Amino acid sequence: MELAQLNIAKAKGMMDEPLMKEFVDNLESVNAMAESSEGFVWRLKDESGDATAIQAFDDPLQLVNMSVWHSPDALKGFMYMTHHISFMKRKKEWFEKLSEANYVLWWIPKGHIPSIEEGKARLEYLREHGESVYAFSFKSRFEPTDLNTIKTA
Rank of each mutant, 00 (worst) to 15 (best):
E124N: 11
A11C: 08
P18K: 05
S115H: 06
L75I: 01
Q5P: 03
R122V: 13
K120D: 00
K76H: 04
G130Y: 13
M14V: 02
S71V: 12
S29P: 02
L44V: 08
I85W: 04
A34Q: 08
G77P: 02
T149Q: 13
E128P: 02
M66F: 09
K92P: 02
M15H: 05
D146K: 09
Y103G: 10
K139T: 12
F78M: 06
L126I: 05
M88E: 09
T152N: 11
D25I: 01
S140P: 10
M33D: 10
F138E: 05
A9F: 08
D73A: 15
K110L: 13
W69K: 08
K89E: 08
A56K: 14
R127T: 08
T52N: 12
M81E: 08
S48H: 14
F142Y: 14
I8W: 03
L147Q: 15
L126D: 13
Y125R: 10
G119Y: 03
I8F: 03
V104N: 00
G111A: 08
I113W: 04
M14E: 14
E128L: 10
R141G: 05
K76C: 01
K45R: 07
L3S: 03
N31W: 06
F40T: 04
Y80K: 08
V64E: 11
G13H: 09
N65P: 03
E124S: 15
R122I: 11
M1G: 04
A51L: 10
L123D: 10
Y103I: 04
D50E: 07
G13C: 09
S36V: 00
V64H: 05
L61K: 13
L147G: 06
G77W: 03
G130M: 12
H84P: 01
S132Q: 15
K21A: 12
Y134Q: 02
S37L: 09
M79H: 04
T149C: 14
W106E: 07
E28I: 00
V133E: 13
D58S: 12
W94Y: 15
E143F: 11
L98T: 09
A32T: 02
D25F: 00
S48A: 13
R43W: 06
E17C: 05
V24K: 00
S37D: 10
G119L: 04
L123A: 11
D58V: 12
A153F: 07
G49R: 14
I8V: 09
N102I: 09
M33V: 09
E28L: 07
K76A: 07
M81F: 02
F95C: 14
K91Q: 06
T82H: 04
K120G: 01
Y80A: 06
D73Q: 13
M15Y: 07
D50L: 07
A34G: 15
E17R: 03
